[in-house]
Structure formats: structure tokens, C-alpha cells
Design a protein around this nucleic acid. Structure first.
Lengths: 206, 206
DNA sequence: CGGCGTTTTGAGAGAGCTCAACATCGGTGG
DNA sequence: CCACCGATGTTGAGCTCTCTCAAAACGCCG
């Protein structure tokens, strides 16, 4: 699921790293598109700004994510990109990518596949947000991200990050995990590994 | 933003409509991929089923959405697709699409552009869900979906659908819209048109 | 050892959800 | 033309659950 696999090595090597200070602007709405970016470290937020200067956040991109994929097919950027913290991005020039796609259909396919996978993932996460109970939301995550053994899940990163991924406060997550452990529904192991003790959905939903 | 524009006419004409009864299965996880589908009417849910038979919903696709785009690049489907209601889908065979992409890079580009646009939209909606206040969530929607006049928004479909789109109960939405109207923040017109009376973000956020 | 971030637990309040009743609108058929 | 029906729209009241604010324990690293 790595966001890097789609890049043909030709393009990958054409990437250039660029450091950004906190608050620095990467590109602005309306300016001509030159390519897309991958967040190497830090955080970049995509915002739409109205005339009064207030921002509506469209997305906050963390390490590993790419931003402005749509810029490949548009003459101008459609929002502002601003570094939230000290950040490093890697820039991939539009022209090089498009040429490579034309020359090498496999590369184009890989890109499409990556986009399609992202859509799946985003749709699933959106669906997950419809679940209000913290416990059920966590269960949903487990159900969807089960390991091949169908009994364990490895949490990505810290619990705080996981909480943000789920759209819960970290407190709510901690508490709920504690409860689930007390109820012998899960078992927490080293390295963010979680083992399911009860079958998923083996619960009371009337 | 129509999901149809990406289809080259060659492929479009290769589409075949297929009716589904409520509860009927369109495809199953693990079965060989034959193509993707567009929902013409009704609703299709994508689910992952565990051994105990319970479902975890990955996505619920409504009219106009396409499902199983990723199937183009995968030998098997990764989840089940089941009609939630009486439904009609349009089927586009994988082979025809891929061939067309290879033959016609413009078509491939259009497809990629469509996927990229969808990703933007999904990310924005996900971001929106981080806003807890119903009022601010509605404002966020307005800010992002403003018409060219920067003063009005046209709601898609019924208020109930809109509520679902926002991840609110329809009651909460009704109430909040009523409040916003009473506070002279918005003005509701015929046809789901809403006119903004105050500047967005011109509110007290301390 | 002394910070700094993560993890954890406590208590309280608010906001949206749930259940419920009713109004409204559009379509259907007698 | 009117009665009926289902779906959407609207308002009311109570409750649950998460969020918020706070504080403390824990782990890691210089």
C-alpha cells in the first residue's frame, strides 16, 4: 500500500527534495501547475482561502502522502498548500511524469492502480466515520485491517496517530482499548500488535 | 465533476445494463475480475465478510458512483458487492477499457484525472468529519462548494441525502439550518439553493 | 537526572443522537 | 376531485457518549 510503488524509477530519480519552514507556502491556488509533491517529513495542509483570509482545510497531508496529483491534469492548482510544521517535500515535475506515462503504459497503469487503491481506502475510512460508538469504530478498523491470520492487527505508528486516523480523541481511544482488554475482547502486545480474542461481531447488537 | 466524463465513447457504448434485486450479489471477494460497474439507480454496498457471516461495510455506492475501479488492476475482487435495494448497474468490461487506455493515452489521462478528483473530494469530506459542530461542518461544506458568485450553494438532492453526505442526522441538519436562517446567516430558496448572508468565517471562534 | 512526548485515568458538560409526534408535499387510484 | 399513502421535512425532549480540560505516570533520550 506504499504510495511510492507507482513511481517508475525514471521519474523517481527526477524527484527533488525541498525543505519548507513552518508556515511556508508550497503553491497557491491559481498558480500554474508544475508537478506533484510527496511529503517526506512534516505536514502540509491544503486549504482554500476566502477573501476574508480564513482557511477551510481540504486535507492535511502527512509523511508518505502525495499531494496535488490532480495537478497533472489541470493547468492551475485549485488550492493553497502550506507547510504546517518544518517539512521536507519531494517534487516530481509534471512533464517528466506525463511523458513517462505516454511512453510506458505500465507506468500509467501503476499510477491508476495506486489512485484506485487510495480511493478504496478513503471510502472505507469515510464509511467508518459513520459509526459513532468508539468501540464499534475500532472493531470496524480491525475487521477491515485484519492480518492474514484473521486474528491480529498491527497498529501503524503511535496510539495518538491511530486515534487521529480513526477520528477519535486519544483519550477516548485509550479508554476504549482498556475496556476492550478488560472484557477480554482484545489482547495488547508489544509493538502495537493487537490480538483479537473474541470473534469480531460476536457482540450484542440485538 | 460527473463521473461519466472519463469514459471514452468507445467504452461507454460497450457498457451493458444489468438489473439487480435487493440483496442480490454483484460479485464476490476472490472471484475473477471482469470489469467495473456504474450505479445507474439504487444502491450497492461493498462489504467484507468474516467467517461468522457478519459484514463490515467498506462503502455504500449510490447513483452515479462507480465501483470496483481497482478491479482493472487486480486479478480478483477484494470484497463483496451486494445490492441494497432494487438496483440497476452498468457494466464495463475490463478488457475493453484497458485496451482503450493503451490505444488512446487521452482516455487514460481522463481516467486518472477522474480518480484524482475523486481523491480530492474524499479527502475533503474526511477532513470535514473532523469538525464536530454541525454548524461549522455545514459552513465548511459551503466554503468548499461555493458557487462562482461566492455567495450561494446548491444542495444536491434532498436534505436527507445532504445530511447523510455530511454525516449528520437529518434532524440535526434541519435544526441547524433553521437556526442559521433565524440568525440571518443564510437564506433558503427554492430548489435547494442557499444564499449566504454573512461572510463565511465571520463568526466567533475566539 | 531532567525534559518532552506519549500513555493513562478522572470528572464534567455539551452537542448530537434517538425516539416520537406531526406537518407537508407529490403521486396514485377510486 | 378527493382520499390515501409514503417519503420528506420539522420540531420536541431526554439521554448517552464523546469531547474537553486537567493531572499524573511512564518511557525515551540527551
Amino acid at each position: 500500500m506504499s504510495e511510492r510503488d507507482w513511481l517508475p524509477t525514471v521519474v523517481r530519480s527526477a524527484g527533488v527534495e525541498r525543505p519548507l519552514e513552518a508556515g511556508e507556502t508550497l503553491f497557491r491556488q491559481g498558480s500554474r501547475t508544475v508537478g506533484l509533491y510527496e511529503v517526506i517529513s512534516g505536514k502540509v495542509r491544503l486549504v482554500r482561502v476566502d477573501r476574508s483570509g480564513r482557511e477551510a482545510i481540504l486535507h492535511s497531508a502527512s509523511v508518505g502522502e502525495t499531494i496535488a496529483e490532480a495537478s497533472l491534469f489541470s493547468p492551475t492548482y485549485h488550492c493553497d498548500a502550506i507547510a504546517t510544521t518544518k517539512t521536507v517535500v519531494r517534487f516530481y515535475p509534471k512533464a517528466a511524469i506525463l511523458v513517462e506515462f505516454k511512453r510506458n503504459p505500465k507506468a500509467a497503469e501503476a499510477f491508476m492502480a495506486m489512485l484506485a487503491r487510495q480511493i478504496m481506502d478513503l471510502r472505507t475510512r469515510l464509511e467508518q466515520r459513520n459509526i459513532h460508538s468508539a468501540r464499534d469504530r475500532i472493531r470496524h478498523y480491525f475487521a477491515v485491517n485484519l492480518g492474514p491470520d484473521a486474528r491480529s492487527v498491527v497498529l501503524p505508528g503511535s496510539l495518538k496517530e491511530f486515534a487521529a486516523h480513526l477520528g477519535l480523541t486519544h483519550e477516548a481511544l485509550y479508554r476504549t482499548l482498556a475496556k476492550m482488554q478488560k472484557d477480554a475482547e482484545i489482547q495488547r502486545n508489544k509493538g502495537g500488535k493487537i490480538r483479537l480474542l473474541k470473534r469480531l461481531y460476536d457482540h450484542d447488537h440485538t
